[in-house]
Design a protein around this nucleic acid. Structure first.
Length: 824
RNA sequence: GCCGGUGUGGCGGAAUGGCAGACGCAGACGACUCAAAAUCGUCCGGGAAACCAUGUGGGUUCGACUCCCACCACCGGCACCA
């Protein structure tokens, strides 16, 4: 150890030692309690950004801390390495996506190593490698065999810029989640996974995840969007035709005065033809065609519709009601048909107003309200008693829902029903750089999965990257040719690749047994490590990745491949890294590169600043001055440890506390250990853990200047200081630990425990309040009971003076803290 | 519109209902130095003071940044979901 803090030499030295000794590799050990700590794996875009550094620093501190506490810690890393940027680079610069990706992975690996993260590199995965995607294909086939994967022709979200379809989750505000281009619709035959079969479990099991932020759970709940209600069947007048609606408001059925279908509803044509209003419908449909999907989906779009010329019969009132087509009815929610209850639904109200349709109130506002039911100005959507509803008149509307549904069930005109906003997951992508879907089409046998021995279906290399139209796989001369695994006849391969969110939906299982070439992973190994005890990543994955991964885990659980059905026990969503109040981005020009900081101050400083500047789940404002401060602190610690290592050479950390100063320092040491331990393990409050360590350092600086120092105590403080700092700044701590004469790594050292007896003080400074306002501070003996405490404090001279001439009403005594005297 | 979250010095941020502003940054002053840097030390919400201060207004309490009610502002998610 040099006298100067030479971070460059120190960091290189210890990174080399860690790698040589392979210290972060772990194996299953039934005698040790496991702890699986995982950060979301990165897409290999080129270089690390500050968001990565933050994500992985949080994880590394936790992993090292848990290791020191004696857990068998699995802390793996890998790369989510299929995806569009690689392909775009191929189109733009003519580099093969594989080369681009592998080069980037190499770059990022070395940066992760430079930051000193404690990964078990033996378990590294890259989803673009055949040894990984072979098992992705195998899993897809398991889904298919279970009836959870199917191909369907449907209008799908189409990004004209990425030239591929998108899942609903990847369409944000009508725009492509990746490139922000407005998304259109295209009729295509595509593969889907039946995530809707799991909607109920995905929803209800959220309650079994107390370790997840409620924000994320709420977002998933909203996304799944469960509504309970009823399906009700209406007969079309004078036609042999019926239509079913979904409604959550069966209580308002008596107020249904019209029906509305989505314009693209399959029954629309049949209804219109011969209804006598064909010309008007056609011109309406024509106008609709010219609207973009984004405009159509807009909530501000005026509700427009057209009469079909047909009538339906309200099954309860038996009144004839007109049937309309309208732009505000969505084909892909419910049944695509809505019963119009203008009195009690805002949209129906607007529509009825515009087309002069009847408005019949069936729920009465509570007495005293100034709503005039005969001349409604807006829909009345609150609760009330039923009117105009036959035998149900006078009932409260909410309990009436169930009553009306069971009556309709008896008459076979309706039944209880549940609807989800969640749609099946569209996983086909018309792109090259993804996992090939291992399915072949045979004229005789239809869609058949590839034989297991033929896996992996490799990506062909003789393809052209044009970025246009269909999947580049179609340009391969040989890829399409296949033999039907069923009948042995000629067959064609599926040309699309999988959504990359498939790859990331099970990588945490692969880490449990990353090298396995007989199975995706050995179940026994997965049983040992799963579930992930702590997962850390950005909140932007709250619905996409985190929902898909939960879905996969549940399917694997049902298939008997996994013994947990929730993958992540605890979830931490870290905040963004900002500079000047906004997200770091190239276009704003406020990017601070990790490389730059590591070169100037070292990895330890970068890590320390990031952990100290804000609690992990909050946004972090980057501050160059703050980085300087962290660097200064590390220098301050280094100098202190160096000096004290010399001063206490050969001294054992054993001592007897002598005077007040000794006790004060021991008190500080032990309270800090407790604080740091609790802050890390209970709350992940790394920022306050670090401030506590700073307080200890400040105290040690004061103490060492005293005339009569206790060397044993100082030695103990020094060692424990290094131990506590080591998860945060591992390189410099290894160096200091070695200098303190230890031969083992600080990484393998035991986390310090605290001595409760040293945390008891003889006297404490307490506060004296009068009527709740602080008036005085006095020194009082610690550990008194309420009465003794009050008496002692009240007998202090200046307190007596303070209370002189006042009438005491009440005394609140909180020993060791405060005394509040209520006076008149 | 609905659902969440946040609001504390010049700044980042601390505070199981019990001293508001820990710790750090910035700043001021002092020591060391021929000088500067580095380092070490002291001060650092407002106010002359009584006091006033945790977005605003109420409430509960001996005591509220913390709990309850109403409102405001900003951020995020969902949004014609029947």
């Amino acid at each position: 150890m040099q006298q100067q803090y030479d971070f460059k030499t120190i960091e290189k030295k210890w990174q080399k030692k860690w790698a040589e000794k392979d210290v972060f590799a772990v194996t299953e050990d039934p005698n040790k309690e496991k702890y699986y700590l995982l950060e979301m794996f990165p897409y290999p875009s080129g270089k690390l950004h500050m968001g990565h550094v933050r994500n992985y620093s949080i994880g590394d501190v936790a992993a090292r801390f848990k290791t020191m506490q004696g857990y068998n810690v699995l802390h793996p890393i890998g790369f989510d390495s299929f995806g569009l940027p690689a392909e775009n680079a191929a189109i733009k610069h003519g580099i093969h996506p594989a080369k681009w990706t592998i080069d980037n992975i190499g770059e990022m690996e070395s940066q992760l190593k430079e930051l000193g993260f404690s990964y078990d590199w033996e378990r590294e995965v890259a989803t673009c490698l055949p040894e990984y995607y072979k098992w992705m294909q195998w899993l897809f086939i398991q889904f298919f065999n279970k009836g959870l994967a199917y191909k369907k022709k449907n209008p799908v979200n189409w990004c004209p810029s990425c030239q591929t379809v998108l899942a609903n989750e990847q369409v944000v505000d009508g725009h492509c989640e990746r490139c922000k281009t407005p998304v259109g619709k295209k009729e295509l035959s595509q593969w889907y996974l039946k995530i809707t079969d799991y909607a109920d479990r995905l929803l209800s099991d959220l309650d079994r995840l107390p370790g997840w932020p409620s924000k994320v759970k709420t977002m998933q709940k909203n996304w799944i969007g469960k509504s309970t209600g009823a399906e009700i069947t209406f007969q079309v007048d004078q036609m042999d035709l019926s239509m079913t609606v979904f409604t959550t408001r069966a209580d308002t059925i008596f107020g249904t005065t019209f029906m509305v279908l989505a314009p693209e509803h399959p029954l629309a044509k049949e209804l219109v033809s011969g209804g006598g209003n064909e010309a008007e419908v056609e011109s309406f449909m024509d106008r609709l065609q010219h609207l973009s999907d984004i405009d159509r989906a807009s909530t501000t779009l005026e509700k427009e519709g057209v009469f079909t010329g047909r009538y339906a019969v309200n099954p309860l009132t038996e009144k004839r009601i007109p049937i309309y087509l309208a732009n505000y009815v969505l084909m892909d929610y419910g049944t695509g048909v809505v019963m119009g209850v203008p009195a009690h639904d805002e949209r129906d109200f607007d529509f009825a107003r515009k087309y002069g349709l009847d408005i019949i109130p069936v729920v009465e506002p509570p007495k005293g309200s100034n709503i005039d039911l005969d001349h409604l100005q807006e829909a009345f959507v609150a609760e009330g008693k039923l009117i105009n509803s036959g035998e149900f008149n006078g009932m409260d509307n909410l309990p009436a829902i169930e009553k009306i549904i069971s009556m309709m069930e008896q008459k076979s005109i309706g039944k209880k029903s549940t609807n989800f906003r969640l749609r099946d997951w569209l996983i086909s992508r018309q792109r090259y750089w993804g996992c090939p879907i291992p399915m072949v089409y045979c004229e005789k046998c239809g869609w058949v999965p590839e034989k297991e021995e033929n896996l992996p279906i490799l990506l062909p290399t003789d393809v052209e990257f044009t970025g246009k139209g269909e999947s580049p796989l179609t340009t391969s001369k040989t890829f399409a040719e296949a033999t039907c695994p069923h009948c042995g006849g000629k067959a064609t391969r599926e040309m699309d690749t999988m959504d990359t969110f498939m790859d990331s939906s099970w990588y945490f299982l692969r880490y449990c047994d990353a090298k396995n070439d007989k199975a995706p992973y050995d179940k026994k190994k997965a049983d040992y490590w799963m579930a992930v005890d702590q997962y850390i990543g950005g909140v932007e994955h709250a619905i996409l990745h985190l929902l898909y991964a939960r879905f996969f885990t549940k399917v694997l659980y049902d298939l008997g491949l996994c013994s947990v059905d929730e993958p992540f026990t605890n979830l931490l969503t870290q905040g963004m890294v900002l500079k000047d109040g906004t997200k770091m981005s190239k276009s704003v020009g406020n990017v601070v590169s990790p490389e730059e900081i590591i070169n100037k101050y070292g990895a330890d400083t970068a890590r320390l600043f990031i952990m100290f500047a804000a609690p992990p789940e909050k946004e972090l404002e980057w501050s160059d001055a703050g980085v300087e401060g962290s660097y200064r602190f590390l220098n301050r610690v280094y100098r202190l440890v160096y000096e004290l290592a010399e001063a206490t050479k050969g001294v054992k950390p054993v001592y007897r506390l002598e005077g007040k100063d000794d006790k004060q320092l021991a008190y500080r040491l032990n309270t800090v250990i407790k604080r740091v331990t609790d802050d890390i393990s209970l709350r992940f409050n790394f920022n306050t853990a670090i401030s506590a360590i700073m307080e200890l350092v400040n105290e040690m600086y004061r103490y060492k200047e005293l005339n009569d120092v206790n060397l044993g105590l100082l030695r103990d403080c020094t060692e424990k200081l290094v131990l506590m700092l080591s998860p945060f700044v591992p390189h410099v701590c290894e160096e200091m630990w070695e200098h303190l004469g230890h031969e083992d790594l600080v990484y393998h050292a035991q986390w310090p425990s605290y001595d409760e007896s040293a945390m008891v003080q003889d006297t404490v400074e307490v506060v004296v309040q009068i009527n709740g306002k602080v008036k005085e501070r006095v020194e009082a003996p610690a550990g008194l009971d309420k009465e003794a405490f009050a008496e002692t404090v009240m007998n202090e001279e200046n307190i007596k003076t303070l209370l002189a001439g006042k009438q005491i009403v009440k005394v609140i005594s909180v020993p060791d803290k405060l005394l509040n005297v209520v006076v008149k």
